[in-house]
């Protein structure tokens, strides 16, 4: 199978703390991969390292964009460049733009696929108008797909919690990624919302052809969605495999002792 992301020997130190240690992980095209582990295991740090928010201390991160056969090493590349290359993410603690409307939030996602500069904005030539119009339409289309169209003109901060999480996904989708990184997308959602999310994620993969790497604590969701699962604890990978294999892996059960795995 064709990889879209390949991470090798990734390590990250925060002062004396080794938050990630010798981590290998890969995601293939059209795959949904889950990254699980107890709180503080280093999952979010892993996302931060591949999206350029922290430069990893050691190891390599390669991506394979569509139509590119050569790997592209993205260690230490700035976050905005990573996004331009086609990786988009959501945040565990929702980080929307609270005082912008829902539509504008998504339009920010379109930013790196648009070109108008300062002069273009002032002169508002034909190409700028066209680009702007298209951005509005595209963004609206994404909102419809994600099921947020009724909120277009609402301030992001006024949305219900579940809708805010979906808006984060919509905003990430607007950057036209080939790999979507979701950090605990179901956190704080009720069972009904979680089920909707389950469908949405599958739909994104199937209809848009976007690969997905997700961090999640809701095991039911993880088991239902994932093609493969990676388990980390104390920054180290302790297991990997299909949902079936992970469910019965004694090491994983031990790491989660006290935390319930049911599916």
């Amino acid at each position: 199978m064709e990889s879209v992301l390949k991470v090798q020997n990734l390590g990250m130190n925060f002062g004396g703390l080794r938050a990630l240690d010798d981590l290998d992980l890969d995601v293939c095209r059209n795959e949904i991969v889950a990254l699980i582990g107890p709180n503080g295991a280093g999952k979010t740090t892993f996302f931060n390292c591949i999206t350029g928010i922290y430069p990893p201390t050691d190891g390599d991160v390669f991506i394979f964009a569509r139509g590119m056969d050569k790997p592209d090493r993205i260690n230490g590349v700035k976050p905005n460049k990573v996004t331009e290359k086609g990786l988009a993410r959501t945040f565990q603690n929702i980080r929307l733009f609270p005082n912008m409307t829902v539509l504008e939030n998504v339009m920010i996602g379109r930013h790196c696929r648009m070109h108008a500069g300062v002069l273009g904005a002032i002169l508002r030539g034909r190409s700028t108008i066209r680009e702007e119009k298209k951005a509005v339409e595209d963004s609206y289309a994404i909102l419809e797909k994600i099921g947020l169209a009724q909120f277009v003109d609402e301030f992001a901060k006024n949305l219900p919690y579940g809708a805010q999480r979906r808006l984060e996904i919509a905003r990430a989708m607007a950057t036209e990624p080939f790999l979507l990184l979701l950090d605990e997308p179901a956190a704080g959602m009720n069972p009904y919302e979680t089920r909707e999310l389950d469908e949405l994620i599958k739909q994104i993969r199937d209809e848009e052809g976007i690969s997905i790497l997700l961090i999640e604590h809701d095991m039911k969701l993880v088991m239902s969605l994932s093609d493969r699962i990676f388990v980390v604890d104390y920054g180290k990978k302790i297991a990997q495999g299909t949902p079936e294999e992970i469910r019965n892996n004694p090491v994983v059960i031990k790491a989660y002792l006290g935390e319930e795995i049911d599916a």
Partner: peptide
């Protein structure tokens, strides 16, 4: 405009802004 929205996004959340 595209530039103005980027300014506001920067004001609202610097990290999310870069990640977008």
């Amino acid at each position: 405009s595209r530039v103005g929205r980027a300014w506001i996004a920067l004001r609202e959340d610097e990290i999310a802004c870069q990640a977008m």
